[in-house]
Simulated assay, not measured.
Amino acid sequence: MKNEDIRKRLQGIECFALDMDGTFYLGGRILEGSMAFIRKVKATGRRVIFLTNNSSKGSWQYVNKLAGMGVTIGKNEILTSGQVAAEYVLKTYPGKRVFLLGNENLRKEMEAMGVVLSEDAPDLCVIGFDTTLDYDKMCKVCDYVRAGLPFVATHPDFNCPTETGFIPDIGAILAFIEASTGRKPDRIVGKPYEEIVDCLKARTGLESGQMAMVGDRLYTDIRTGVDHGLLAVLVLSGETKAEDLERSEIQPELVFENLGGMVPYL
């Protein structure tokens, strides 16, 4: 695509939904070009919302982490799959009790939003990226799922990127549950599914065509844009490499080495 065409495509974007791990930072390190991108977006009167599938951290933790990196944002500028799951449960299962497979951060986030949690008498299950997972928890959640309780997952990611490689994410947990119970989640609410896009629209007051989804992962970030009408922008600073595009059915509209690559076109 010609430079002028790239510039025109980005011209109508009012808000960038920005993935975090592998896109803006990796572990505790801000990726090259990220700060230049943020400065340019703000200078041109646009907005950024950090949109993450990682439900193992609360929104307040992301605010604090970014502040420690020199990026000051408000809580409304962070949207996590854990928050989306809480909103989905409150809307779809009002007054129902939830067995949560998640760590203390996700527990605090959901309780703060009004979700009623129950270990022994739940009406449904919510599965998150549980970094405190143990065998007893897996047995318990499988019992509930096997018994037919509805079950919702925060996101589908198989691995979570770190500075030293990858660690198993919720996709591996869901595979365990399916192998034991024969059931997949009744609903997944994070990227690339519609629930997180609906929450994004509600949060910004914008329509899909006014927003870009920027990320490093084809099957979550880029598919979110492709499936829901957001401009799909891939950065090659994380999971996806240039050669992966050749064999992928999911194709972004724009590709940059990192966030800084967009700066000249904004």
Rank of each mutant, 00 (worst) to 15 (best):
F24T: 05
E14S: 12
V226D: 06
A67L: 15
V214D: 02
L174T: 10
E87W: 09
L200K: 03
L124E: 07
T204H: 12
I250Y: 01
Y88K: 06
R223A: 15
K40E: 14
V189C: 06
A212H: 00
Q11Y: 06
R107F: 11
T220P: 05
D134P: 14
L230W: 04
P122Y: 09
L117D: 12
E77S: 06
G165P: 13
N105M: 12
Q251K: 15
E87K: 12
V116T: 15
L51F: 10
I188H: 06
D21S: 13
D5V: 14
R146I: 00
V141R: 00
S59D: 12
S56E: 08
V235N: 00
Y193V: 01
L79D: 00
F166H: 10
D169P: 02
A232R: 03
V71Q: 07
D136V: 10
L101W: 04
D221T: 03
Q83L: 14
Q83F: 07
K2Q: 14
T154F: 02
D130K: 03
R223S: 12
T72W: 02
S55W: 07
I177E: 02
E246P: 03
M138R: 02
A147G: 10
V141S: 00
E243S: 14
K91M: 09
K241F: 04
E32F: 10
L31G: 01
N105E: 15
G58N: 12
I38K: 07
A147N: 11
G45Y: 11
I30D: 03
G260V: 01
E243C: 12
E257M: 08
D221G: 05
Y135D: 09
V233L: 14
